[in-house]
């Protein structure tokens, strides 16, 4: 009998306790947790900001124009003489609500299109893919400007236009994941049992790609926030005097030229902090959902 060839021990892969689909933070590391904390704070301010703001947005006095920080006004005044800190606190609401509308609407649209494409395949998939490809041709901002021209400038119009523009991106990524999941045999087993297609999708298919859905939604939030700020900046989103970070960056422009950049900088900083936190968290959630895919 010949000697057995030496075999290297098979490396056992330590499977992390799976977090598939759980919208928790496991596996996102310290950065993920810090980002989540920043976002939680931002959302809290968006909700209770008006209660925290010491002054109202309309309490303006031109004599305070560009006055620096004082004992009662920690961040000083804007060019129009409003309290800067109060404006930031008040502006959080529309600055965060806007992207939230975009994310929810784009995700619902994207998930529905992706699931229908993956489930039906064939001609349905092809038609939907062509429609998505056509939508790809329209940059989000352009679509929002068109929508503002037709329906009038407002946060809702801009948000919905952006959602429609972003839906194809979401649909494309989720379609691939849904097709992969659809081809797995447990779905076929459920079909043979006689479960209806929508029940299988709702109870099994969508939950099994929920990790990716959450990750994509998070990343989209960052994009939507920057785009909405840009739209508000060019005057087609949130209308002044409603406080909004994007509007504040725009209104602070004259101050920048005169050597008082505080308003634009402060609002811009708020946008950057939230967007960076969202993106870092989104990337980590995305990596996690890829890593836990079998």
């Amino acid at each position: 009998m010949s000697a057995m060839p030496a075999t290297t021990p098979i490396e056992t892969v330590d499977r992390e306790p799976s977090v598939r689909g759980l919208p928790g933070l496991r596996g996102t590391g310290i950065v993920g947790h810090v980002c989540a904390a920043i976002l939680a704070l931002a959302v809290l301010i968006a909700i209770v900001g008006p209660l925290l703001a010491p002054y109202s947005a309309t309490e303006i006095s031109l004599s305070n124009s560009f006055v620096g920080p004082t004992g009662d006004h920690y961040l000083g005044f804007t060019g129009q003489g409003a309290d800067l800190l109060s404006l930031l606190l008040l502006g959080a609401r529309s600055s965060i609500l806007g992207p939230l509308i975009v994310v929810v609407a784009a995700m619902v649209l994207g998930v529905v299109v992706a699931i229908i494409s993956a489930w039906r395949g064939g001609i349905v998939d092809q038609v939907l893919s062509v429609i998505m490809d056509v939508l790809f041709a329209f940059p989000g901002i352009l679509l929002a400007i068109l929508a503002a021209a037709v329906f009038g400038a407002s946060l809702q119009t801009a948000a919905i236009a952006l959602a429609i523009a972003y839906a194809p991106y979401i649909a494309r990524v989720l379609r691939a994941a849904a097709i992969r999941e659809r081809s797995r045999e447990y779905i076929a087993a459920l079909e043979v049992q006689g479960f209806s297609a929508w029940l299988i999708c709702l109870r099994h298919l969508v939950p099994n790609i929920s990790g990716l859905i959450v990750a994509q939604g998070t990343i989209l939030f960052g994009y939507a926030m920057v785009d909405l700020a840009a739209i508000s900046y060019i005057g087609l989103g949130v209308q002044p005097p409603q406080p909004d970070w994007g509007v504040m960056v725009a209104q602070g422009q004259s101050g920048v030229l005169q050597g008082y950049p505080a308003e634009s900088l402060a609002a811009g900083l708020c946008i950057i902090i939230v967007v960076v936190a969202v993106n870092l968290l989104g990337e980590r959630l995305n990596a996690r959902s890829q890593g836990s895919a079998r």
Binding site: R184, E185, R294
Partner: peptide, 8 residues
């Protein structure tokens, strides 16, 4: 390995 729903 693929004939059961991983979440169930």
């Amino acid at each position: 390995y693929s004939s059961l729903d991983p979440r169930q």
